[in-house]
């Protein structure tokens, strides 16, 4: 199963790419996706994403297929689906 991941500010590109396509096993969850991205990207990814207690930072926004996800508990356990689009970006308003 493959999903699409886009890394926007404050996340750095992976191998010069902002948008990547990742292969995961059927049944794997969003948390597995984070682990996989961390493997590809080292500690930078997790440091940008998590507070020290593994809570997602309030300065970060995660979107799944264009929808912002705010329910962290359900997000971690969310089963990934083929061709879903995950975006990691800054929680910033105004402008």
């Amino acid at each position: 199963m493959k999903v699409n991941v886009t890394l926007l500010t404050p996340f750095k590109k992976i191998k010069e790419k902002r948008e990547i396509r990742l292969e995961l096993e059927n049944g794997e969850t969003f948390y597995d996706l984070i682990e996989k991205l961390s493997q590809e990207h080292g500690d930078d990814f997790k440091n940008n994403l998590f507070e020290s207690d593994k809570k997602i930072k309030t300065s970060i926004m995660i979107m799944v297929n264009g929808r912002t996800i705010t329910d962290e508990k359900n997000l971690f356990q969310r089963k990934l689906k083929e061709n879903e689009e995950y975006v990691f970006c800054a929680a910033i308003g105004g402008g």
Binding site: C89, A90, I92, G95
Partner: peptide, 10 residues
């Protein structure tokens, strides 16, 4: 301006 890509993705 970092909202440009974010809004595009949304």
């Amino acid at each position: 301006p970092i909202k440009i890509l974010k809004h595009d993705k949304k």
